[in-house]
Amino acid sequence: MAPNTEKIDQGQTEEQLDLGKLAREVGANYLVYPDVKYPPLEPFEHKDPGHLADPKKASLFNHADKIYDLTPHVGTVIEGLQLSTLTDQQKNDLALLAADRGVVFFKKQELNPYQAVEFGRYFGRLHTHNYAGHPPGLPEIVSILYDEKNPATVAAIESKRTSDGIHTDISYEKQPAGLSILKIDLLPSTGGDTIWWSGYSAYDRLSPAMQKFVEGLSAVHTGDYHKRLAKLSGRTIRREFPPDTIHPVVRTHPVTGWKSLFVQPVFTKSIVGMTKHESDAILNFLYNHIAGGYDFSVRFKWEEGSVAIWDNRCTLHAAIFDYFDQGRRHGYRVTPTAEVPFYDPNSKSKKQAEQEAPEKVSSRHDQ
């Protein structure tokens, strides 16, 4: 049984913090970077709440004011429900909906960071970041705040294209992120959108020959990018990064049973068994295939108080850093981890599943 690393606590405070207010007043100065060492993560058995869901997701659909899809392949909005008051069955159904639709958006949420931590624990063991700053007393929180006055931050971001930042969260871990839960509570006057891509559709849009080829591949994932950021900022690495991990290029989602493309430019390093030239050629092709997937992506324009819950096992995402001359953008993320990624050769693509049993996987639920 893994140690309860999600309970690691540094920088305790007796009062509950309003992170949005702090971000407005002092920017990133509210963050703490404790000079401590966390124990290494140990294997654990992940029990996905999506397995307990009602296939019709009635506990959500029958109680929301409105539910609608933003695009055909990824992204659904739920209005009229508060995440802080969801029942266990509603959480189970939400896990399934996120697995089906990739990312689910909730508007006008009252969820505070303490509630977000407890909410996230329902979906898996929470990840505590290796080096990122966190609010006092909340090491499970990753604060999303890029300070426009920090030259190192600006230089790190402006040197890249947005497509270079496409990723799934912490894929370098042996058991990477399952869901990610992000609330935005401070926005610039304009800008700061986020894009998600469907990993299911990214696989489906490959030719049958390419699908067959990539299904047999594994890729190396590394934490080198986060190591470089830690060095750039001069921050302590509180848990040593794991050795490079190997995950399948196509993974099977444990709840839906569908195949999803699982490589990305931030943490994927190379293809196992290939020369550098071969690996680079295949990975660059797949990265460009994903980045060019306008027909299987969704761009979300945040509102203050909105929450996005996405499934890293079947989506990729990237923030758009176009707002530094417009003001600050702030939010906080909680990251439940999940199973070791796997590929089941008997699994199906989403397209195949829809063709064989469309009534079982129909994702249209406009109300």
Rank of each mutant, 00 (worst) to 15 (best):
S189D: 11
S189K: 11
M210I: 13
P176C: 11
A177L: 10
P176R: 07
I166C: 04
P208G: 04
A177T: 13
Y203A: 02
L186A: 10
I184Y: 00
Q175T: 05
K183V: 12
S201N: 02
L182T: 02
P208H: 09
I181N: 06
Y200W: 14
S189R: 07
S180R: 02
S207V: 06
P208L: 06
L206Q: 08
A177W: 03
I170D: 02
S201C: 14
M210A: 09
S171H: 11
T194I: 09
A209L: 14
T190L: 10
M210L: 14
I195P: 07
Q175M: 09
G199Y: 10
L186P: 05
D164Q: 13
D193A: 08
E173C: 06
L179I: 04
G191D: 13
A177P: 08
S171C: 12
D164F: 09
S189P: 00
S189W: 01
W196F: 06
H167S: 08
D185Y: 09
T190C: 10
Y203K: 05
I166T: 04
A202W: 13
T190Y: 08
I181G: 00
D185F: 09
P188R: 02
Y172F: 15
S171V: 04
S180W: 00
D169N: 04
P208M: 05
P208E: 03
D185K: 04
R205S: 11
G192P: 10
P176T: 01
G178T: 13
G199Q: 07
S189C: 02
P188S: 12
I181F: 02
I195C: 11
T194M: 10
L179D: 00
Y172W: 15
I195L: 14
G165W: 01
E173N: 13
Y172N: 00
W196K: 05
Q175Y: 04
L206M: 09
A209K: 13
S171M: 06
D169Q: 01
W196I: 04
P208T: 02
R205G: 03
L179G: 02
K183P: 12
G199P: 02
D164W: 02
P188C: 12
M210P: 02
W196L: 01
G191Q: 07
L187V: 07
Y200L: 11
S201Q: 15
L182W: 02
D169H: 00
I166M: 12
A202V: 14
T168S: 15
I170E: 08
S198N: 14
S201Y: 10
Y200I: 04
G178V: 05
L206F: 07
H167Y: 06
S207D: 12
K174Y: 14
G165S: 12
P188V: 00
S207R: 13
T194N: 04
S207G: 06
D169W: 01
K174E: 15
L179N: 06
S201L: 08
Y203I: 05
G191W: 00
D204S: 10
